[in-house]
């Protein structure tokens, strides 16, 4: 993994609540970069202030194509976790079912329900070939009335393919291309591309050997109208909220329950 160990944000992103003129200006620049085609998209704030501040529209654009890639073949769990965190936020504000296509979607419904993501809203499709998966994904992206469409893909999207899917999403529904096997990324027209790896958790206070809330190294590799960035994030399993991992708590040698002034 080529992530620096505790590099936690931040570039020159403004703090939350920054000058609205700056936001407008950023949107304007984004519009110019897009060639005016799509205008300002509807945006879903991720709930992580530093992340929203970094993203050009202060959140994740809806009705666009996003790509979430595992940072290696063993990072499937982390990549899926990050995707589900985003998806459950999308499902909270967008009505309708979610299309999920994959070779063999191995989603475990009770675990999704525990994340606050209603399994009854899922339409699962088993598609054996990549062509079939892309076909189903595109059909889903074109469909109004879905909350989102997700495809577990095995190959990187190419430029033409991603452009086609992005256009479909703009008229239909938010899309997530998920690559759990990791692998390279080709030049593509996706709105954002995220690369996710696991990071060691901090044990719960009552069990120093136990497994704590999940932490991920989240790298934004590509962002239309914005810049790359990377963050160390933690998901609160109890509330489902994403947050930046408190930097000092990340030291593995820190005694459990220690309090750090800072």
């Amino acid at each position: 993994m080529n992530f620096p160990m505790t590099q936690i944000l931040s570039f020159s992103s403004p703090a939350p609540g920054a000058d609205p003129r700056l936001t407008d200006l950023r949107a304007e620049i984004g519009r110019i970069e897009r060639g005016c085609a799509a205008g300002i998209p509807a945006v879903l704030p991720t709930g992580v202030a530093a992340l929203d501040g970094h993203l050009p529209f202060r959140g994740l654009p809806l009705k666009r194509l996003h790509e979430v890639v595992a940072a290696g073949e063993r990072e499937a769990g982390a990549a899926l976790g990050f995707l589900l965190a985003l998806l459950s936020r999308v499902m909270r504000i967008e009505a309708g079912p979610v299309l999920w296509c994959g070779r063999r979607p191995e989603l475990h419904a009770p675990a999704l329900a525990a994340l606050g993501l209603d399994p009854a809203r899922l339409i699962l499709v088993r598609a054996r070939t990549e062509t079939d998966r892309l076909w189903a994904f595109e059909e889903g992206l074109r469909t109004k009335g879905l909350a989102a469409a997700v495809a577990e893909l095995e190959k990187p999207l190419d430029l033409a393919g991603s452009r086609r899917l992005q256009l479909a999403a703009e008229k239909g529904t938010t899309g997530f291309a998920l690559r759990l096997d990791g692998g390279e990324a080709a030049a593509s027209a996706v709105e954002t591309r995220w690369r996710i790896a696991a990071a060691p958790s901090v044990p719960p206070a009552d069990d120093p050997d136990g497994v704590g809330d999940p932490r991920w190294r989240v790298a934004l590799e590509r962002c239309r109208g914005g810049r790359p960035g990377h963050w160390l994030m933690e998901k609160n399993d109890a509330t489902g909220d994403l947050a930046l991992a408190p930097a000092l708590r990340d030291r593995p040698d820190l005694p459990a329950g220690a309090r750090v002034a800072g």
């Binding site: 769990g77 976790g81 063999r104 989603l107 675990a111 525990a114 209603d118 399994p119 009854a120 809203r121």
Partner: peptide, 19 residues
């Protein structure tokens, strides 16, 4: 899907369960 679906969420379960 029915509104009244009840899922057991008390125990920790993996999001990805291998077939």
């Amino acid at each position: 899907g029915a509104r009244k679906d009840v899922w057991q969420t008390r125990r920790r379960r993996p999001q990805r369960l291998l077939d």
